[in-house]
Amino acid sequence: MTPPAATPIVRATAIHKHFGALHVLKGVDLEVAERELVFVIGPSGSGKSTLLRCLNRLEEPSSGSVVVDGIDLLDPRTDINHARQRIGMVFQSFNLYPHMTALGNVTLALRKVAGRGRAEADAIGQAALARVGLADRAGHMPAQLSGGQQQRVAIARAIALEPRVMLFDEPTSALDPELVGSVLQVMRELRESGMTMVVVSHEMGFARAAADRVLFMDEGMIVEAGPPAQIFAAPAQERTRAFISQIKHH
């Protein structure tokens, strides 16, 4: 088991989320310790993305509390734009800005939010691109890059702001199988550098190798949580077992 850390970087408590009549998150508690990698699995529609998006307030929880790096995200006095610099997010569909170069994508928030000058932002951006193995692609437009490269630029865009925690929402689901490895490699290196990460994904191999904890979500609740070996090999809940056997056969 993961040793309990002194103060978790992420502490989400009793999160509920309603979309109209739809009750999508039904009282989710999640604590993520510093340097921990938490993996979230679960069937489509179970609320994984919504939970992740509550952690940087892209989605407003209906009730509950979210504290990240000591900042209460739901406090109306919190400067959410300032807080979000500490919370990197990577999306399934990359969401790179198509009208900007790779470097432009990485430096936009550095210049507009972090207040860096152009030269400084460019230097930080170049370093971030180098970390994801794309130093030589800085001047390329997203359309000139492969899916795997685009996703790595998206990771560079997030880490350039030196976040305390990174949220990944199915980062490899939209990729051709042969491009998945390069993105997972970057994520592995990020983890080795000590980044705290919450990853929604069904890459079980990666989870086994890199995750400290795996959460299984179903119907808006965390059904079961534990180390990857336990969740994948000997889940306690029938629902978890059924889901695991289903993704294994895909």
Binding site: L58, H82, R84, M89, F91, Y97, A109, V113, A158, L161
Partner: peptide
């Protein structure tokens, strides 16, 4: 697009 931008603090 707007979500990605907002997630970086814009």
């Amino acid at each position: 697009q707007i979500e990605a931008a907002r997630s970086t603090g814009l």
